[in-house]
Simulated assay, not measured.
Amino acid sequence: MITQVDFFKCLSDPTRLSILKLVLNKQNICVCELQEQLELSQPKISRHLALLRAHAILVDTRQGQWVYYSLNPNLPDWAVDILNIMARQDDGLMKSQSEQLVSISTFCE
């Protein structure tokens, strides 16, 4: 189970925070979609995803050759509450990312 300190350490990094916001928005997201949205390299995104998985904030599911990430359904209630508050915030970033998610052309499918 994740501690509050580890949870907030994960949220303190701008890249991990952006990844979590995209996961919250899309529910189930592939690395290639994160690459396109965040304009970062696959190794950098994978390193952040590995930390989020190690702390059990995200879980991964393999579908063919692709790996999709989603929130861990077993997160403590306090963590889910915080993430839900984040999801409701309109900070401009989420609005632009949300609009772009609709138009993403990925090779994941």
Results as ranks from 00 to 15, higher is better:
E39W: 11
S46M: 10
L38I: 07
I29V: 12
T61F: 09
D60S: 13
I45P: 00
Q37L: 12
E36M: 11
L51W: 01
A54R: 05
C30T: 09
L34E: 14
V59R: 09
V31Q: 09
A50G: 08
K26E: 03
A54E: 08
T61S: 13
E39Q: 13
L51F: 06
S41Q: 14
Q63V: 13
T61R: 15
Q65D: 07
A56Q: 13
A50K: 12
K44W: 15
A54Q: 06
D60G: 13
L38S: 05
L34I: 11
H48R: 05
I29K: 02
R62Q: 14
A56I: 06
L58M: 03
L51G: 02
H55S: 01
E33I: 11
L58Q: 04
P43E: 04
E39T: 13
P43S: 04
N25I: 07
L58E: 02
I57H: 01
N25C: 04
T61P: 00
I45T: 01
Q35S: 13
A54F: 04
L38F: 08
E39A: 15
Q27D: 03
K44V: 14
E33D: 08
D60F: 13
Q42R: 15
L49F: 00
K26V: 11
L49G: 00
L52Q: 00
H55D: 02
Q27S: 09
L58A: 01
P43I: 07
Q35T: 12
R47F: 14
H48F: 14
K26H: 02
N25Q: 06
A56H: 10
C32K: 07
R47A: 15
P43N: 06
D60M: 08
Q63L: 10
T61W: 09
A50S: 14
H55R: 06
R53H: 04
H48C: 12
H48I: 03
C30I: 11
A54I: 02
S41A: 11
L38N: 04
Q37T: 13
E39P: 07
E39Y: 10
N25L: 09
C32L: 07
Q35N: 13
K44H: 14
L40F: 10
C32I: 09
S41T: 15
